Simulated scan of single mutants.
Amino acid sequence: MSELTAPPEWGGPSADPNDEQFGDVIEGATLASAGDYDAVLVGEPYDGAVIGRKGAAEGPAAIRRELAETKTHHVERGPVASVGDLGDVGIPDGGVEAVQSAVRETVTAIYDADAFPVFLGGDNSLTVPNAAPLLTDGTLGALSFDAHLDCREVRGDPTSGTPYRQLHEAGLDAFAVVGARHFETSTAYHDYVAERDGRVVAPEVVERDPKAAVDEALDSMGDVDSVYVSLDLDVLEASAAPGVSAPTPGGVTTRELFEMLGHVAAHDRVAGFEVVECAPPLDDGFRTARVAARAVAHFLSGLEAAR
């Protein structure tokens, strides 16, 4: 099992005593205390499996920095309060399979602590160890907000483009992708998803009604016991999130994404959440890290309101 590093010291940078920021409410946590919070942050500084441009290993630190200065108050749901931070998963040397195996052991211990993890990535290959432990406790659906389907065949080592193929081979029961682009994923992979009764919800469907788009994806999963939610930031329009491995035009807006995350977090079957592919070296003025932090804030707000 990979060790968890000590969590960082949190603090809100605002000098206004009336400002409450996430840096003021997030606390360092341990596996023993993780279940006491509505959610715990877990950093995964890794980009060894990226197909395109690297940089996501620096994502966790950048997301934490931007989250620390984000205010806790949601206009409709009020303030977020119950969040811990377990630190970062230590990434071992070796190939992608070895990394996935080591991370899975650590993630299993987090779920065993009765914690709700929010993983700060890191690249999309770690979706496999982040979600796979949930397969041992019943049926599982994966809801992916992504421009791509990420179900390529594994040829040699896994990549950031293979996680959902790996999860299907491990027994994933249901799969839906919200925000997948036209002209971004080949026909063979769309056929792979369709043959397994997966659902693909395009950006124009999201535009018409973001909450209905999420409900369509969840309804397609039937009565699975748990749902794992993954956010690849390239689901956003490239101008909103330039600091990702594969930015493309035609994506969803930040407002649509935030509405969908707050909505999906309130569903009682959701058991884990991740934000992946935030690559600060590729970013423009911290734009992508900032939107990643707001995405986490919106998800946490929906999660706390439902508990």
Rank of each mutant, 00 (worst) to 15 (best):
L31T: 15
A32Q: 10
G250N: 12
A217R: 09
G272C: 08
D268E: 15
D19S: 15
D223M: 08
Q21V: 07
P280L: 06
V25N: 07
F175S: 04
D197M: 08
D191A: 09
K54Y: 12
G156N: 06
I110T: 00
E237F: 07
R287P: 09
D123I: 04
D19Q: 13
V118N: 09
A49F: 03
L126I: 09
T139M: 15
M221Q: 02
V178S: 03
D232P: 06
A15W: 06
A56K: 01
A56Y: 11
V252T: 13
H190W: 07
L261H: 00
D36N: 12
A188M: 12
V200I: 14
L4A: 14
E207S: 10
A174M: 02
V252F: 03
T254V: 10
V296Q: 13
T187L: 11
N124R: 15
V80K: 06
G161S: 11
A297T: 14
N124I: 04
A81M: 11
R255M: 14
E304G: 00
D225M: 12
A289I: 05
P158I: 02
P247F: 02
G12V: 06
E216L: 14
E27H: 06
V252Y: 01
R53M: 13
I26T: 03
V25G: 07
L86S: 05
S125M: 13
V75N: 05
G52R: 10
R77Q: 11
T106I: 04
P163S: 11
A212P: 06
D283M: 07
W10D: 02
L86M: 05
L120G: 09
G84S: 00
S101A: 13
D150V: 04
V291G: 02
R155S: 12
G156D: 05
T136G: 11
H74M: 02
C278F: 00
R199Q: 15
T108E: 15
E304F: 01
V40W: 01
K211G: 07
R53H: 10
H74I: 01
P8R: 13
S125A: 09
Q166Y: 03
R155F: 15
G78I: 07
A297I: 06
A142N: 07
E153H: 09
D24G: 08
D223L: 04
H73Y: 14
E3G: 06
S82K: 11
D93T: 15
R294V: 04
